[in-house]
Design a protein around this nucleic acid. Structure first.
Lengths: 360, 360
DNA sequence: GCGCTTTCTGACAGCGCTTTCAGATCAACA
DNA sequence: TGTTGATCTGAAAGCGCTGTCAGAAAGCGC
């Protein structure tokens, strides 16, 4: 047998001796129902432990109580933080959350959106940044148009190139620029960057902002000092090692993500380089614990939970006819001990006696 | 207008010039359909960008493609790790995930379960440990019985006292015991514990296992050396500070969670205590980055992603009539530099010259 | 060309709920 | 007591899909 006992509204109605219409009204409070009948219905529902079938409800009402959330990877602290805010906001609005992890696969993101459209969710939250890929953007644009036609709201975190959706925009570019200026202020002139896959807009923005601010000061980064790596602790470790292998000429390294910075810190240590003695290191995001590293990591703090709440709020607001809304969320530079003034000519100026340079 | 245009199966059928029944069959492949008709239907669906209404499908089929996942807090690295495994497994099985965060509120956990039952999910995954609360357990037992009657599978991570559900059991007790023995092996005899809220079974088990192993060696922990704190970095910080305020007599501190250990590490440092010089510190879980702290944290590693996959696998297996299934997942003690042999009588033996003790 | 089986197809009855619509009930007023 | 109007209730029509069932079409042997 694959049909299971389920208490239905009809059972409740029969138990209470009323019609299912009345039972529905009593339970939902949509229309006035004579007090004693309502009591009877409520009691019957309680007695039978009735739980409405959400699918039937959604079908009849032509709308559900769910929102969809799509991120790149729930286990990444960045998305975990945002998701935390989203979940809290959802709970406050009595919404169910359908979650999707794309693992940074554009195709999977698309299929999640159409799946969620099939679920007739109230709104879809795109918390991962978009992809820099024309074909993908085209397909996504079509898909989002369908969502719009179906009345499904869309809200996003980060820039989604070529897609006009309401969005919460962490100021990646400005934040990276501010960080660059702070680093210049410490006296650095030679920089290296550990960047992520260039299909992710966030990465592109951070690198661009960083380079722009440097350019304003007449500083540019040598191409070989920009290393691409995966968005993970080990990706950062590998990228930093690669940098060292190429010959680290920078006095300051910017990892476009805190997780990568964590890996880089370990890698530098493995290669006998001290931070910030031999090289300063900065990240981006201010995920938990990076302030507890030794040295604590300089970074650009983003209010992740807050971003989560705001993107939900945006999604819940009715669509506007005209332009898409954009809320900017500034990042704040947090200078910690992983960055310091560059060493004078011989590195490791702090050592009591000069040491031979550790080979690059 | 609050009714939105949606392409329905009927639209597709009309476009293809067949009945909706045939369209359904062609789309689902449940029965043979003449090749040319199937082509026409598929083409029409493609042309109209048809996405089936999941609610109508679920209602008609009396089953959905969704599973529910309930955790205590998505933004906690422990649950983020497990969720990662769950999401991967779900994607492989083409299942949608409905996620709920209880924020450690038993009532919310209950309401999530019944909400998900209303969603007619295939299975509910309880990834947070249960609560040590009779009333709650009773209510939960009833609720789970209803799920069983409705054919909704239940699987859990951690011990859910008094609830017989299939579960993946991280060996908290044995893991903590193994850790205790390792610590005893280093020469420690005086221990302190930073524990979490005692309503969480996981906490209870870890503390119990730790104490048992110590007892076997004839060691017991003074009651004032056991401090309760919140399951968070700051909770750990406060608990450790409290311990210092009470007068830290232990040479080794066990934090029942890595996040608490991170806070404790910072707190000890704030109080001028070095780790492991003045006090050894160990955690539990081996969440990301604790191996990158200075000193790297000794802990009991749990394969979080794996646990996530396994609890999903368990939920997908049909229910057994008899006893509930239990899969044990061992934790492995990872000794890192945050623990060392206790200092000889005067603390900070490593300092070149004796220092006055930092006041407790 | 006929009857028989074997495929396929379309009409239709739900799935459990909401919501419209018309009829029932009742109070109050003439 | 008869009306009118204000409330409340139940029958019934969907929401979009699946699955049963009976009948149409096609294949086959004679």
């Amino acid at each position: 047998m694959d049909k299971w006992s389920q208490v239905t509204l009809n059972d409740v109605a029969r138990e209470a001796g009323v019609s299912s219409a009345t039972a529905s009204r009593a339970l939902n409070g949509t229309t006035r129902v004579r007090a004693d009948l309502r009591e009877r219905v409520l009691a019957a529902a309680e007695r039978l432990a009735y739980t409405p079938n959400a699918h039937a409800q959604a079908l009849a009402r032509a709308s559900s109580q769910a929102v969809g959330v799509i991120c790149h990877d729930v286990s990444d602290p960045y998305f975990a933080g945002i998701s935390g805010g989203v979940m809290r906001a959802a709970a406050e609005h009595d919404l169910h959350v359908i979650m999707g992890s794309t693992f940074r696969d554009p195709a999977r993101e698309l299929s999640y959106v159409s799946m969620m459209r099939g679920q007739r969710v109230r709104a879809i939250l795109l918390t991962g940044s978009g992809f820099e890929d024309r074909a993908w953007q085209g397909a996504m644009r079509e898909e989002l148009a369908r969502c719009a036609a179906a009345g499904t709201r869309i809200a996003a975190v980060s820039r989604h190139h070529g897609l006009r959706v309401d969005s919460v925009l962490p100021e990646n570019r400005a934040g990276a620029a501010a960080l660059a200026r702070a680093l210049l202020g410490l006296g650095h002139r030679d920089f290296a960057v550990l960047t992520g896959p260039p299909v992710i807009t966030t990465v592109v923005d951070r690198l661009a902002g960083f380079q722009e601010a440097l350019a304003e000061a007449g500083v540019r980064i040598a191409p070989d000092q920009i290393v691409e790596g995966a968005f993970s602790r080990d990706g950062g470790h590998r990228a930093a090692s690669e940098l060292v292998a190429r010959g680290l000429r920078a006095t300051c390294v910017f990892a476009s993500t805190d997780i990568m910075a964590v890996g880089a810190l370990a890698a530098f240590r493995d290669h006998g380089l001290t931070v910030p003695g031999d090289v300063s290191l900065a990240g981006f995001d201010d995920i938990p614990v990076v302030g507890d590293l030794t040295p604590p990591l300089t970074t650009v703090a983003l209010p992740l939970e807050e971003i989560g709440r705001r993107v939900m709020a945006l999604a819940l607001r009715p669509a506007t006819a005209g332009r898409s809304r954009v809320e900017r969320v500034p990042g704040t530079v947090v200078l910690r001990a992983s960055t310091s003034a560059p060493a004078a000519r011989p590195r490791r100026e702090r050592s009591p006696r000069p040491l031979t340079e550790t080979p690059g």
